[in-house]
Amino acid sequence: MSAYKRLSIRQKQIVWAWLFLAIPTLFYGLIRFYPTGTAFVISFQDWNLLGERTWTGLSNYQKLWNDPVFWKVFRNTFAYLIIGTPVSLVISFVIAYHLDKTRFMHGFLRMLYFLPFMTSAVAMAWVWRWFYQPVPIGLFNNFLASAGIPQIAFLNSTTNALPAVLAPAVWAGLGFQVIIFMAGLRAIPGSYYEAAKIDGVGWWTVLTRITLPLLKPTIVFIVVFSSIGFLRIFDHVFNMTTNNPGGPLNATKPLVLMIYETAFSSFDMGYAAAQTVVLFLILLLVSLLQLWILKGDNS
């Protein structure tokens, strides 16, 4: 105690700062950095979860590089990202933009859009699987049939399956993005629009020159957030294709599902860890790139 008393005010502040920092530091160290570090280590090892860990150098990465399934999965993952992010961004903005102007049942409508976000992915996947069934069960194909349009094999076609799996994933995330967009729209002072109205500026110009630029921080957030979501897509795919996860013929398999199967079906932990490291690097790169692009010209 007397040692503490002899410290200067500045030194005491440092002691307290470290004391307060200890909890988050410990938390991050134990819960985040330690497992992450371990994953990196395991990616250079061979381990079947039960036996010994043996060092294998870069062989896991070499295997990955030469694995055609990995490249297929890699392409799928980016397809989810490149289709999912812009589509969900545009749809959620359009909904938020109109919902913001609607006074009629505003709260109720907003709740309706938010509902899917709170629904379990499993339940949702099953409903969508029912939508996608052939006649006479599936909703969509029944529609097509009554309109005289040929049937579409949604989940059984290697070309249609990925978009068909992506649709509910986009749909599920919309509510959240709509809420964020609406908060962003609300934060723009009404007088900005009134000034534009007096100047006689048309709605399209107002949208592109005022609303969207002022929404930039919101857009950055949503793009980064939903990109990470689509790069890590798993539960929707897994539940939509339970009989043959990631099928047909790996047409819908994302990276996380491949990691899951490598780790817990094949028990090849080293290989799974190597895939995880690759996913981590992709996430890091994509996020940094987006932040850089979207924030770059802000000066």
């Binding site: 900005y192 000034a195 002022l214």
Partner: peptide, 9 residues
Amino acid sequence: FQNYAIYPH
């Protein structure tokens, strides 16, 4: 306007 309504961007 009271808050000037000039566009920050």
